[in-house]
Design a protein around this nucleic acid. Structure first.
Lengths: 195, 195
DNA sequence: GTATATTTTGGGCAACTGTCCAAGTCGATT
DNA sequence: AATCGACTTGGACAGTTGCCCAAAATATAC
């Protein structure tokens, strides 16, 4: 009983991939048992053999994908020598997210679904916390002197927002955003009053 | 044939309201004919008497709501005497969007659905264009000397992103973002190299 | 009153949904 | 060879879906 298990793992992985692709194509709520089964090239019953429910599959697949994506971005960002080149790299990546690619769609769909699925919500929040923490330490190591936490929160939100708007407006000039974005992270403490 | 029409308009409006509320509660794809009919207090058949399809109702309702919201925000923003107080007002508004309110949910849901509904996509893009244009003229009238278009794009995207992240992380300290956000809009031209 | 236009009703339809399950396949173990 | 366990199959089930429509209700015009 070894090759059987191996085959099972492969099927499970194919279900993951199919789920990720379909969430982007038809939306979180539009993914059906038979759809994902057909896409994975298996019989409909297989889905409920490997997962308790379709929602369960969706949660597992989307968190796995999102986790890998966040980790990858954080990792690549950490390799950037200074803040300015880091931002340039981020903007460059961003221009690759046209909004039609599975990555950006899945991220936003997962965000939304998390509002109605507490467990998914918790996982996603942990991921964003991790990502923010990476950005904070990266900013500090590169000489950012201001409120690094606030900057990280703002940067993470801005990136997500840009992915969203870029999908609506593919003609958006991403490169032109470098100026104000740099200014945002050049803030060095003398902020303003706050309540 | 006048009071009849009036009653029809009232029903139509109740269907709009029900649709807006339900998009936030169960998601764009989760709204069903019978759901919206029950919420509006009418028989299921009414929906398809007033609208060609549920999707049609959803598109009409969400664009009407989003248009009113964008218009309201742009109008209130235009009343702010300077950029800093404008940002403060925006952040204050933002802290009201906990992510559980219908407005923020509907905005994000509509964003997403637009990826699969070309007409909705076009309408939404026009709205954001209008909003950006308002921000641009507001920035210029308040003495912004840099690339006002880029600043407006970035600001609009950042606001949407913050709504998204605020919904995931209600404990987010919105006021702390004022510093870097102001710095972003304080950019006055001497940006940097760009590809 | 009758006639006409508009809106509303409640049920009917075929298609699809998630989930389950008895039967079947296939490789490993004995 | 027979047996065992993990995996897969394809169909069955009850429930829900969007959409449609003949009939009833309501309001205006004559």
């Amino acid at each position: 009983m070894e090759k059987s298990v191996e085959r099972g793992r492969a099927t499970r992985q194919r279900l993951f991939d199919a789920a990720v692709a379909l969430i982007g194509e038809v939306g979180w709520g539009g993914v059906t048992t038979r759809m994902v089964a057909e896409r994975a090239g298996v019989a409909p019953g297989v889905v409920h053999y490997h997962f308790a429910s379709v929602t369960d599959l969706l949660v597992e697949a989307s968190t796995a994908f999102a986790g890998a994506l966040f980790g990858e971005v954080a990792h690549r960002l950490a390799e950037q020598p200074d803040i300015e080149s880091g931002l340039d790299w981020l903007l460059g990546e961003l221009s690759g997210y046209t909004g039609t690619d599975p990555a950006s769609l899945l991220i936003v769909e997962t965000h939304l679904a998390s509002g109605r699925l507490p467990e998914l919500r918790a996982r996603l929040r942990d991921m964003i916390d991790d990502f923010r923490a990476c950005v904070v330490s990266w900013l500090r190591a590169r000489g950012h002197t201001g409120d690094a936490e606030a900057a990280a929160v703002l940067l993470a939100a801005t990136l997500d927002g840009l992915v969203l708007h870029h999908s609506l407006d593919p003609a958006m000039d991403v490169a032109a955003l470098a100026g104000p974005l740099r200014a945002m992270l050049r803030a060095d403490g003398h902020a303003g009053s706050e309540g």
